[in-house]
Simulated assay, not measured.
Amino acid sequence: MNTPVYPVRWQNDRVLLIDQNRLPNEYTYVEIDLVEDMAEAISTMIVRGAPAIGVAAAYGMYLGAKEIKTTDRDEFLAQLTEIGKTLRATRPTAVNLFWAIDRMEATALQCAGSVAAIIPQLLVAAQQINSDDIATCQAIGAHGVAVLPSSPAKLCLLTHCNAGALATAGYGTALGVVRSAWTQGRLARLYADETRPRLQGAKLTSWECVQEGIPVTVIADSMAAHCMRQGLIDAVVVGADRIAANGDTANKIGTYSLALVAKAHNVPFFVAAPRSTIDFSLHDGSGIPIEERHPSELYQIGETIVCPPGVEFYNPAFDVTPANLIQAIITEFGAFPPAEIIDLKNR
């Protein structure tokens, strides 16, 4: 398959989500036409990746609005706020979720007229969020290539988790930089961390690369230091789920240790994310909420239990990488040292 991947699509008055829990073995869609089903799809990671979650939540707000049975504007807005609360509770770390819901609620408030006039405007807003994200990712890709090391001529990049088309509306953030490097002849190979415990790198990033013929090598998360010491990695590019105003970045668990390893080996470490991922209300990363997921992700692989009874588990889904380990944050507006992203606040 050499066609673009769109994990969230609007078609025939419903949302089609690529079921990412079934990849890479099955490429199937889940049809969503109720807001409660969208909330479940987000929480169970049928759809995942901060920008993709935001797009899905925007459509969820529209689907929920259609279900509201009142013509009273104030009552409609109150119920829409409750729908937003339900969606906000699904994944606490990904700030794009909250950003998209805020934008949908603002659209409803700003739309003059009846409930009947508001509802179609919510669909327009969700579709705009969808299309904007694709354009944003393409811009991130272009800016990212521009700040990658100038030598060697063809680079070997390392990424963690999946920040590709599957994690966005299409094209990707970190993997968008990889895609752009590939199309411009700057990429020799992508190394993809397997990304325990859910294996998004092994399952999803590698799947995307195979679809497009991008050379990809999957490594265990614990192999990154060895690969860097062997000179196999020229730069690291990762995505983000929330970035504080000072540049501290929350991303998939294991990103922090990867950044430390990169620093120790003098390998530049980049974060690629849209401006909507920056939470300017947080001074630093200490305020970023970290989602903790069910321990079965650790003790079970498929149907196989890999730990003995009686073991305790700790399964945070994200960690926070301090800004001083990040060379630049690549956005649709350009690449910035972490200390300068505050300049994007009014963009």
Rank of each mutant, 00 (worst) to 15 (best):
T3E: 08
T3L: 07
P7E: 03
W10F: 15
R14M: 09
R14L: 12
Q20K: 04
Y29P: 01
A41I: 06
S43E: 14
S43Y: 00
Y62C: 02
K66L: 14
L77K: 11
L77V: 10
R91H: 11
A94S: 12
I118D: 03
I119K: 10
N130H: 14
I134Y: 07
Q138N: 07
I140N: 06
A142K: 10
V147C: 14
P152Q: 07
L158G: 06
H160Q: 05
A165M: 04
T168S: 11
T168D: 12
Y171H: 12
A174L: 09
R189L: 09
L190Y: 03
R196F: 00
K203G: 00
T205W: 03
Q211E: 13
A224G: 10
H226C: 14
H226T: 15
A235D: 12
V238R: 04
V238W: 01
N246Y: 03
Y256E: 11
A264Q: 15
A264H: 08
V267R: 12
A273W: 06
P274V: 12
S276K: 14
S276T: 15
T277V: 12
R293D: 07
E303L: 07
P309L: 09
F318Q: 01
V320M: 00
I329W: 05
E332H: 12
F333A: 15
A335P: 03
I341V: 14
